[in-house]
Simulated assay, not measured.
Amino acid sequence: MEVVLISLASAFLIALGHVLAQFGLRTLSPLKGAGISVPSAALAFVLLSPVFANTAGANWQAALIFAGIGCLFPAMITLMNFESNRLVGPSLTAALGNFTPVIAVISGIVIIGEFPTTMQAIALAVIVGGISLLLWKPHRLIGDIPLWALALPVGAVVIRGGALAIVKLGFATWPDAYSATTIGYIMSATVLLMTKGVIERRVPVPERSRGALWFALTGLSNGLSFLCLYAALTRGSVALVAPLVATYPLFAVGLSKLFFGTAWVDTRGLVGIAITIVGIGILLAT
């Protein structure tokens, strides 16, 4: 039950980060926002590391794994999603993102030999189906999108899913979620700031700072979601954690209604929510 609660906390914090980012995007571009959110979280983790990090069990091989993953996730994933939204649109990007837990489970099997139980496999299929039904917008998907453009959203899904299994390799020798998150965020902040510097030298972007606080809060929410995700992975299998974290759209629907008063989902969306809850129930019963 502890793993389930931590995983669902990660899902909630991801959804909260999405909502908070909407306030920041009113005055700042996505790239500028990412340049604030990720470094803000990295700084917070570094400042608190003397209190929460377990450096006594440090392992340099695990640290290299955490650093390598940090260069890709969340840094490169953030940039890839920005470009994917531009090239193929947010609907298709979100639809393909639903398959992240599937890739995570497959990676768990291939990389660390972690096979899901029959009930976990069923729950995974149910949750992916429910979330897909909730987010599915067929009239806004493929259109005239060239096949090569799909490489970005597909690549992001593969990296995000595969990262979970690789991180578990690091936890085998250094099972400290806080240290893993801190190292990963330091690397992500470095990658994002370097990329932002290169891009903005070529394309000047007007300075606006009113959204800075919102993106700092977004970074803290996303950072805590990573910490919960890694904490769950130190306690449970990828097959259990990944599907639960993938339920964040359920929380996003509720938070969007609360903060923005957006219209409730249609009948298909309600069915998708119900199916997803059934999938969570199956995982709870395993």
Rank of each mutant, 00 (worst) to 15 (best):
A75F: 00
G108M: 06
T55H: 04
G130T: 08
V203M: 04
R201K: 15
L192G: 04
K257S: 13
L48Q: 03
I109W: 12
I103W: 03
W136G: 14
G113I: 02
S107C: 05
F12C: 11
K137E: 15
D144E: 12
G279W: 04
A216E: 08
A239K: 08
A165T: 03
R202P: 08
T218S: 04
P116G: 03
A58D: 07
I277H: 06
T55P: 07
V271E: 06
M1K: 11
I159D: 05
L92F: 08
E114Q: 14
V19I: 15
E200Y: 10
G236L: 07
P90M: 04
A11N: 07
Y178V: 06
N98L: 11
A165N: 08
G35H: 03
G155V: 02
P249D: 06
A104Q: 05
L5R: 10
G162W: 05
A263K: 14
A75P: 07
G281Y: 01
I142M: 14
F171G: 02
L240I: 15
P90A: 10
H139R: 15
V51L: 15
I36C: 08
P175H: 13
T247G: 00
L244V: 09
G17A: 08
I109E: 04
A62E: 09
A63F: 12
L255T: 05
L224H: 01
P74E: 00
I166E: 04
S107N: 05
V278N: 01
L8I: 07
K137V: 14
P243K: 05
S37Y: 10
F259Y: 12
I280V: 14
N85E: 03
A67R: 09
V203Q: 09
F23I: 10
P153N: 02
S209H: 14
I111P: 12
L147P: 02
M187L: 12
A263E: 11
G108W: 00
V102M: 09
A11P: 09
G130S: 04
G68L: 03
G161A: 09
V38K: 05
L147Y: 13
L193H: 05
G57C: 07
M1V: 03
T286G: 10
F115A: 14
P50E: 05
G155M: 00
L244Y: 00
A121C: 01
F52V: 00
L270Y: 12
G261Y: 03
G170P: 07
E200M: 12
L229F: 13
A156G: 13
A177C: 01
V278C: 02
T267N: 11
R268W: 11
W136N: 15
K257A: 15
V102F: 10
S91Q: 11
L193S: 06
P90S: 10
V158H: 08
L72Y: 04
L141W: 14
R202C: 00
A285G: 02
F45N: 07
P153D: 00
Q61P: 01
F115Y: 15
